[in-house]
Nucleic acid binder design. Structure first.
Lengths: 210, 210
DNA sequence: CTCCTGAAGTTGACAGTGACAACATTGACG
DNA sequence: CGTCAATGTTGTCACTGTCAACTTCAGGAG
């Protein structure tokens, strides 16, 4: 009769979502290796194997967690390019937003290292995110958000059109490389001031070379 | 009496080296996660726990394997800059070697993905390689090899001296980012021709922006 | 030569993990 | 009211890292 029985109901109701939530929390604290079935079920107050009703195996749970992390990255990028001070000159404005996008990427990597590593730890069995997965509020993923900025740079005449094709590869590589070197790699222990310098140098490279 | 007893001698003789060799083989085939104590001891024909006489724990073995992988990267980079056709113009020559270094880095990542991932999978407990570790024949690591190329670019006047400080961060990030995106990341399934285009675009970015 | 000591390797055990099979519960639908 | 399929549980197995206790063996003290 009571709406909420004293003990947990046998059927959880939204176990799948709850497990992904738990996985996201694990990933945030410890990275993708910590996304472990038993830890997720334990955190959800459910038995070891309950997860197998919703995920074929650990990789399938991890994949869902990775997608959430990629979305978190896209969301921060969207947020940071929505805000920046608008300049009367459209060329300056396009550069400011482009710069802000790169900063957002590295900001995410350094402030949420566990999520960042997880976003790119998609199990090898699954190739990449399907369309509509790992996206932000606009429905675009990090790669598409970058493409939109590059398109704008061409539109306002900030860069010549013939340099547009595949420019994503170049900009993305530079910013992604810095992020991983700072996160997992040999740069993980440099002081904060040096990090800022590294970010500046990398963004300068991209702006000058794109 | 006989020099070589029929069954394996109780004392292996060079077990530590043999275990690292086994770990390197595992890393090559499957990446750092596959560097597993029991697999290494099994491959060496020795019991589970024999490794604990030479390594405090799995991380210590993995660290030794990572160092070997980093050395392999350094060795390929050395090899590729030793060979390139020498141009009479020292400026052209410096650019050719610089370009060859970047290509070698990405070549290593794509031809030996397991080793590449392992080289940067140094356990979090150890911060980075001590001096003299992870180096090539010249005694320099990948980072130092890059620095030497940048120094040369300045010396021959190919780039102004005021752009030299921290230029490693920029060049390294671009090439490392491409390597990881091609290896683990969303670019891992693009066709070979597209890979080449991506490499060209990234190297152009670095050459123009450095 | 004998004996002993410590380094190197082995055996046995335990906890944590992913995964499978068989069983229990429950809500929805006839 | 009865059935059944979805959902959750229990039991079990293989594999891993790690610890403790045991065994083998090489080399030096006497």
């Amino acid at each position: 009769m009571s709406v909420a029985p004293s003990s947990r109901p046998y059927h959880h109701g939204r176990l799948r979502e709850a497990l992904v939530d738990a996985g996201v929390a694990l990933a945030r604290a410890e990275g993708p290796e910590a996304v472990v079935l038993r830890a997720a079920t334990r955190a959800t107050g459910v038995s070891n194997n309950a997860a197998y009703r919703h995920f074929a195996d650990r990789d399938e749970l991890l994949r869902a967690v990775c997608e959430r992390c990629m979305s978190a990255l896209a969301l921060l990028m969207e947020k940071r390019i929505a805000a920046p001070p608008v300049d009367p000159d459209p060329v300056v404005d396009a550069w400011v937003r482009f710069d802000a996008l790169g900063r957002a990427y590295v900001e995410f990597a350094t402030t949420e290292p566990g999520w960042f590593r997880t976003a790119f730890a998609v199990p090898r069995t699954t190739h990449s995110f399907a369309p509509g997965e790992g996206v932000g509020a606009s429905g675009l993923g990090p790669y598409q958000l970058l493409g939109a900025r590059l398109d704008e740079l061409v539109e306002v005449g900030a860069i010549p059109a013939e340099r547009r094709p595949r420019a994503e590869y170049a900009a993305w590589s530079a910013v992604h490389g810095l992020s991983t070197l700072l996160n997992d790699g040999p740069l993980r222990d440099i002081p904060a001031a040096e990090r800022d310098q590294a970010l500046r140098v990398v963004l300068d490279l991209v702006a000058r070379g794109i």
